[in-house]
Write a protein that binds this DNA or RNA. Structure first.
Length: 715
DNA sequence: GCGATCAGCT
DNA sequence: CACAGCTGATCGC
């Protein structure tokens, strides 16, 4: 829950995500996303009065947020005061003090935050330097490095302050399985259940908030079953969401709600009241997406854990994990970091202690001495598909596909659960291994899906140590030297890729296999190298409904079930990772690498096509040319360009990749303060050939900012 | 009657 | 505990 007061130290005349008290005097308002804890005061009479007296005061947000807000009648009065800004489109805003006429110009850029539909971070550039307000965010490791607009030329912008989502800035949440991993786990659980019969239904016990749409649409698309919800008028102009949800309760996937839905569920009743179909009783399981619950586990768990006869917990997070936050900050290296969220169990001081090492002044004092001289010249990180240090976090991002990596094709067919090959040994997923993965990326190959546990004191110590090492070893990005001349530096912050090139790159990227393959390839090799037997999935088929077997049982529950005992006897190899047997492992991994290989790989390709919807990639170019056909959902982060990926795709297509003189010259001309040497080094990377200099773009002023028109929103 | 706040709930 | 809400009671305007 955000405890951000609304105002940043550098730009106190702006208010973000808070609209009460002092914020009533703001010159401009910003809303990062449509969650209530970021909307305090947004419909209060005091603010309503202010709007009534002022034509100029505006609320800035993403097009999706605008849509979600205005479909709620309680916020309709904002209609004439909302300005939606396209994501990744630097926009100049004039802040006028209405009484005095005093004026201040600021450039704001919305960056995708990956938290919920429409969620963005705000990057402000003005007289007081460049500051980043993250709102709530979930970004995988490496995603900051791929956000072009966090860079000037090939250097990271000089960011004075970051106002940071610290929800899971706690070692307890050191690692949270990636969105894809969680999605995959849920997908297979749902698939395994609803394919048993039409009377088998799933209830997704989701909280009433935006953010689960990603889950619903994926399930619907993969399984061809729409998700029943209570309400969907807010998505009326977002056809890609609308088409996967339904108000018709005759479906096998439900995310509907009722005040006493838990109670109803215990009575084998869905929140919408359904208990049967064709007079026959329904078999209902509930899946509750949770993050905290997994964070509290003292042992490793799968992303899915069975907690009762028909109840499951699924790991699912809207917020970045501790290590993702670390990665983000480590890349940005701001001068200051301020926490937006002070979790109940912690204090602002404690958080600051955690965050301090990522502030530049601290790292200059503590880190640079360990660096080889060369590393002091910080280059924009180029994330390569060959990079081995991901834990799969990046796999979500369809834009990150790379053709540079030689990848074996995996079976695209999804095999139904009943016919699944046996689980394989899922590798030594010990905690220590994972930590090493972070610290020494090149040597690590994660198998998959695990919740890290960090409750053990000794392990936490180890973690701190490793984290420290990582920081020392990490290549630190360069920063643009300026902070006070941000406006002048706009050449470095406008989109660098013309829309046509973006599209071309995407099309090419879509032809190649996503990084998933590389990921699993490594997994397969590892699996082969390690011991595992070809045991089988339980094959009992009494005709009675069976619970899915891909997943873990909670300890107290496991012994009481037929399924788990069976699994237990057949899967002892899984526990080779430690000296403990399966039984003592409790919630041990059940999805093996083998199973993962067999999962519906084609779905991941489909996801690529879908990301045009979930993200707002290309919006900067396409919107201007009027070809955008629906509201781009700034949910994910696929709009982030992977330089290397694009480059590789081009190279493979035979495109000539020439680091042009033109680029070098232009960069030199705009890098008065920076080191040309650094820039030219980075430029020699062919990736940059697909960018043109930013001077080809004009920055739209806020006055010209167009509100997305309905006919453009819905094709 | 409405909003703010808080307790209690999931 | 509580990711992000909800409901209901109470109080004040």
């Amino acid at each position: 829950m955000s405890s951000f007061g609304g105002r940043m130290r550098e730009y106190p005349s702006l208010s973000i995500d808070r609209f009460d008290r002092d914020n009533l005097r703001a010159r401009a308002y910003f809303l990062s996303h449509c969650h209530k804890d970021h909307m305090k005061g947004l419909r209060a009479p005091a603010l309503k009065r202010r709007l009534a007296c002022s034509l100029k005061v505006c609320l800035y947000c993403s097009p999706v947020t605008r849509e979600l807000l205005l479909t709620n009648p309680k916020y309709k009065f904002w209609e004439n005061h909302i300005v939606s800004l396209e994501v990744e489109t630097p926009t100049q805003i004039s802040l006028v003090e209405e009484a005095s006429g005093e004026k201040e110009d600021i450039v704001v850029t919305l960056l995708p935050a990956g938290h919920c539909p429409g969620s963005v971070m705000f990057l402000f550039q003005g007289e007081k330097g460049t500051v980043l307000y993250t709102g709530d965010f979930r970004l995988a490791k490496g995603e900051a490095a791929r956000m072009e607009l966090l860079h000037s030329g090939n250097r990271v912008k000089d960011i004075q302050s970051v106002y940071l989502d610290t929800t899971f800035c706690d070692p307890k949440f050191y690692q949270i399985p990636s969105r894809e991993e969680c999605m995959k786990g849920i997908l297979e659980l749902v698939r395994s259940w609803i394919t048993l019969s039409v009377y088998h239904v799933v209830w997704l016990n989701c909280k009433a908030a935006y953010g689960y749409e990603y889950l619903f649409t994926n399930l619907s698309e993969e399984l061809g079953v729409r998700v029943h919800v209570n309400k969907l008028d807010m998505f009326q102009n977002m056809p890609e969401i609308l088409s996967h949800m339904t108000l018709d309760r005759h479906t096998q996937i439900h995310a509907c709600r009722h005040p006493r839905d838990d109670e109803w569920f215990r009575g084998n009743r869905l929140p919408c009241g359904m208990t049967s179909r064709d007079g026959r009783r329904l078999h209902i399981i509930s899946i509750k997406p949770s993050t905290m619950w997994f964070g509290e586990r003292t042992r490793k768990t799968n992303v899915i854990v069975r907690i009762g006869e028909s109840s499951y917990r699924a790991c699912f997070s809207f917020h970045s994990s501790y290590s993702e936050i670390q990665d983000f900050l480590n890349y940005i290296q701001p001068v200051n970091v301020y926490p937006n969220v002070i979790p109940v169990k912690t204090t602002e001081d404690k958080l600051r202690e955690i965050l301090k090492p990522f502030c530049r002044s601290y790292s200059q004092n503590h880190e640079s001495i360990y660096k080889p001289l060369g590393a002091l010249k910080r280059c924009k990180a180029v994330y390569s598909a060959d990079r081995d240090d991901d834990n799969g976090d990046e796999l979500f991002d369809a834009d990150l596909v790379s053709s540079g990596h030689k990848i074996p094709k995996l079976e695209p067919e999804s095999v139904s659960l009943q016919n699944q090959p046996p689980p394989e040994n899922s590798q030594e997923n010990t905690q220590a291994t994972n930590y090493k993965a972070t610290a020494t990326p090149t040597s690590f190959q994660v198998d998959f899906v695990e919740c890290e546990e960090s409750n053990d004191e000794g392990e936490e110590e180890e973690e701190e140590e490793e984290t420290g090492k990582k920081r020392v070893l990490a290549e630190v990005p360069p920063h643009a030297a300026d902070s006070t001349t941000a406006l002048k530096d706009l050449v470095g912050l406008v989109p660098l890729v013309p829309a046509c090139e973006q599209r071309g790159a995407r099309q090419e990227a879509n032809k190649v296999l996503p990084k998933w393959d590389a990921f699993f390839k490594r997994t397969v090799e590892d699996s082969d190298a390690s011991e595992h037997e070809d045991s089988c999935l339980p094959t009992t088929d009494s005709g009675e409904p069976q619970s899915p077997r891909l997943f873990s049982d909670e300890e107290e529950f496991s012994d009481s079930t037929h399924i788990s005992s069976q699994t237990s006897s057949q899967s002892t190899h899984i526990s080779e990772q430690g000296s403990q047997g399966w039984e003592s492992q409790g919630d041990t991994i059940l999805i093996s690498s083998q199973e993962q290989k067999k999962l519906d790989f084609s779905s991941l390709k489909r996801a690529e096509g879908r990301d045009m919807f979930y993200t707002s990639h290309c919006s900067t170019g396409e919107n201007r040319t009027g070809t955008q056909s629906c509201i781009p959902l700034d949910y994910g982060t696929s709009c982030i360009k992977d330089f290397n990926g694009e480059c590789s795709a081009r190279a493979q297509e035979g495109a000539t990749a020439v680091p042009t003189l033109r680029n070098s010259v232009q960069l030199q001309s705009i890098s008065e303060r920076g080191s040309f040497q650094e820039r030219s080094v980075a430029l020699s990377h062919e990736a940059h050939t697909s960018f043109q200099t930013s001077s080809d773009f004009e920055i739209p002023s806020s006055l010209d900012t167009k509100v997305s028109e309905p006919n453009k929103l819905c094709s």
